[in-house]
Design a protein around this nucleic acid. Structure first.
Length: 139
DNA sequence: GCCAACGTTGGC
DNA sequence: GCCAACGTTGGC
């Protein structure tokens, strides 16, 4: 199973909102590199959810429940077939969020796409990176 | 709020 | 098809 990381601004849609909703359409991705990754997701793939702009930390895990399908881009000046979204549901929150500072200070995690390309909102996570984040997040 | 990095756009 | 200008993102 592939692993991913998805960013969100908690003021727009936080991990808590995802838990409260029990799942969501992960829409609004407007970047071609990120779209490529969304399209590659399979049902059962797991994702780290990262909060940007506020506390800047990885807060929880989600699972893909539906592969990429068209994002209708409601109210936007975008053709409805240009962008895609996936459905995800919450798996569990990390006991201890893994902050960006921790990631940057870590020899292995500092090589993550999250750090290398900070503007990419959806990016792949390597198996050893995944294991490391979970180990740190569980204290 | 500032600024660097990066993606996108548009003129040539 | 290249590249400069511009807009947006996101860390600080």
């Amino acid at each position: 199973m592939a692993k991913w990381l998805m960013k969100t601004e908690p003021s727009t849609y936080s991990y808590d909102d995802l838990v409260k909703d029990g799942g969501t359409h992960w829409n609004g991705v407007r970047n071609y590199a990120a779209r490529l990754h969304l399209s590659a997701m399979k049902v059962g793939d797991q994702c780290l959810i990262y909060h940007s702009m506020g506390p800047k930390e990885i807060v929880g895990i989600a699972e893909v429940t539906r592969t990429a399908y068209p994002d209708p881009c409601e109210g936007e000046d975008e053709p409805a077939d240009r962008w895609v979204m996936v459905d995800i549901k919450p798996v569990r929150a990390l006991k201890k969020p893994v902050t960006l500072a921790t990631v940057k200070a870590h020899a292995l995690l500092s090589k993550m796409e999250l750090v290398r390309q900070s503007r990419l909102s959806v990016c792949p996570v390597k198996p050893d990176e995944w294991k490391t984040v979970l180990a740190l997040g569980n204290g």
